[in-house]
């Protein structure tokens, strides 16, 4: 039943997509550049595809949730991202929402068991 497997995979991707932003915002209280953030999330067992993360960072910057700065003092120039004030506010709201959502869902799932 490969098609069921495929369906499950696509549903999981869909489910994770909404939570990506929360995981990214949660790690940006201190400045990070693209690859350091990939590693940080990997170390914390919340891996995210580099090809998804890099464009996402730019998008969040465009939405003014992140600020960015090029650091050219080292041999390799890197673009650092940091939560903006608006980003902090949005992160707080999303965190609350996630709390509610997981409580609701847990309650629903518990019924079954």
């Amino acid at each position: 039943m490969e098609s069921i497997e495929e369906l499950i995979n696509s549903l999981i991707v869909e489910l994770r997509r909404g939570t990506l932003i929360i995981s990214v915002l949660s790690q940006l209280n201190s400045p990070e550049y693209g690859y350091s953030l990939v590693q940080k999330l990997e170390d914390k067992n919340a891996p995210i595809d580099a090809g998804t993360l890099y464009p996402l960072l730019r998008r969040l910057e465009k939405q003014e949730l992140l600020t960015s700065e090029w650091d050219t003092s080292e041999s390799r120039p890197r673009k650092y991202y940091l939560l903006s004030d608006a980003g902090k506010m949005v992160y707080q709201r999303l965190k609350d929402e996630w709390g509610n959502l997981s409580n609701q869902l847990n309650a629903l799932i518990m019924e079954d068991e």
Binding site: G34, Y35, A50, Y54, R76, R78, K79
Partner: peptide
């Protein structure tokens, strides 16, 4: 408009990897 900046950032990220 964004071409050069994206390229520069992506280059740095790939070099890091």
């Amino acid at each position: 408009k964004t071409r050069e900046d994206v390229k520069r950032e992506l280059r740095a990220n790939i070099e890091d990897m």
